[in-house]
Design a protein around this nucleic acid. Sequence first.
DNA 1: GTGAAAGCGCTAACAG
DNA 2: CTGTTAGCGCTTTCAC
Lengths: 348, 348
Amino acid sequence: MTITINDIAEKAGCSRSTVSRVLNNKGYVNEETRKRVEKVIKEYEYSPSATARSLSKKDSNTIGVIIPEADNDFFGEILKGISQVVDQNDMTLIFCDTDNNMGKQERALNMLKGQRVKGLILTPVNDYSDKESANRVRRQLDNLMVPVVILDRQMEYSQWDGVFFENFRGAYAGTEVLIKEGHKKIGIITGDLNLKIGRDRYRGYVQAMEDFDIPIQDQYIFEGNFSEEKAYDLMKECIESGNIPEAMLTCNNRTTLGFIRALREYKLNLGKDIAAIGIDRIKILDTLGYNFSYIERDTIEMGRTAMYRLLERFQNPNKNREISIMPFNIVLKGSEKLKATSKANNME
Amino acid sequence: MTITINDIAEKAGCSRSTVSRVLNNKGYVNEETRKRVEKVIKEYEYSPSATARSLSKKDSNTIGVIIPEADNDFFGEILKGISQVVDQNDMTLIFCDTDNNMGKQERALNMLKGQRVKGLILTPVNDYSDKESANRVRRQLDNLMVPVVILDRQMEYSQWDGVFFENFRGAYAGTEVLIKEGHKKIGIITGDLNLKIGRDRYRGYVQAMEDFDIPIQDQYIFEGNFSEEKAYDLMKECIESGNIPEAMLTCNNRTTLGFIRALREYKLNLGKDIAAIGIDRIKILDTLGYNFSYIERDTIEMGRTAMYRLLERFQNPNKNREISIMPFNIVLKGSEKLKATSKANNME
DNA sequence: GTGAAAGCGCTAACAG
DNA sequence: CTGTTAGCGCTTTCAC
């Protein structure tokens, strides 16, 4: 049905080896025959089967990408970045969304193994219900026998290249901003402390507080899990207790949203009733002109970087393990002096 | 290097046909041999090459997805929906982001042809710089020789199945809400009128106005292009002119954002100084408790539906062309009586 | 310069 | 029930 290399060879009056040569621009081939073959190829709109080609070359040109939630701005941008570089390098991207579900992640890995991908970019799920599964994932990755780049969420005890955010320093910097603004009662809504990324951010906060000799008050440590819902519940509780901190650090975009939702529900004014700084940019807040200060990273670039790491690894399989740490940027939406974290907000 | 079906056959002391039979659970195979083979497979963590399998079966189990912007909530959710169904059906998803660029789209189509995908879900780019390209795309799609489902952005003169939004009726309904609220001076920031989707929404507005005998005033027709920037510019201009309508219909999520940004910049209060309703939900506005009324669709379901259409087409290649129109839902954030579109907003 | 032949890993008749 | 054989569409020696 579909047209094959043999068809082209026949029409062009040569062998398929010759067609293959012009296709791959490799080996000697007479200028005239080349023209002839090329003409036939164009005429029939022939496009060689990547499948057959991979099989024959034992090399696939395909990379797998596993992310936990495509419907999250953050990962949408990551995906865009990866996709750009994949495209530039004439590769193919197989996409999997795990929904943060360990079972789906295992299936995805299995599928990608079957597809014989050439490399993998993975943001592991954060499902810790099953103690065994972390090891099982590690084994699956080994079993893949191809380079892997871990993205955003650190996997412990792994030998893979990785691209991460400066979690510790980012959180430290955010906390420092609040401190320098003169606050003492500084709280934090943490991420999931089962995740290294969550712990690192928390440690950044702790370290900053210690470095500036500000006592940490347990009542202002709110242990969240990176979800909006949890952050909302925690903040609500905090507000109802009547004992709210002067300032708050929120540990990711979802957390920030839950935090703001609670404030709004209780008619508290961000920047007046409570100061705050968050990790992650929330583009729409800027668009709306809502003054919320944050620690941002270039997410699309993060995706690109992951892909670059993979390409380098293809080039040089034996090079040392490489961890890329994406820099952060402090965006203050406060007073002119950049001292206040968030000036009073009036939506409308 | 990687382990093949032959290795398994050898270890299990049988022929590769037998292994193939147990792999595919097809044909007769002795219970004992089956056990033996399965054991070896598990032991070596063997996973058959999808590549070789496709080549042999002349059938790929892979579908291609081309979307214009992964870093847009809307398409993130679409992708999630598609991915869910792909996963449920043990298929593989090849992802391409065109950046709304015609050249990239052509390359993507080419690549997918080479990959011999079994089907394609496409949201065409909206780049109209080149008159020829629309035809070229149509030819490329034909040339693919596999089922295609067009998603969200209608392609004219195409024979493919499609999944779209009720553009006309959605816009009509939104306009109707504004009319029934008692407004006469009702404006619209349209989408790109080069796109059918843009024209349909505009027509919905016009029709509603006519049906209710409200004169349409040219000064209140703002021709946008679905981008936030353009909507912002238009609204800004409108405000500066000093002649703003009583109510406004904004034709997609980006447009709504530009519109709101302009209002905020000029300290106009949505719901008080101007009423409005938009097309597309903007999740974060709800999260933040910002009262903006809108016409919504279930985006994840839209993605799923596209995939269902494809699966049905695989089942029955000759069935009639099918267009799925996703229903809409009116979400009013106004008075208790659901009359007002947006009550006065105070962000904080 | 070019073709013949072998092989990539798997499936699918077809014998036995 | 199982093995043999012949491909699937392409690349890659290796002669000529």
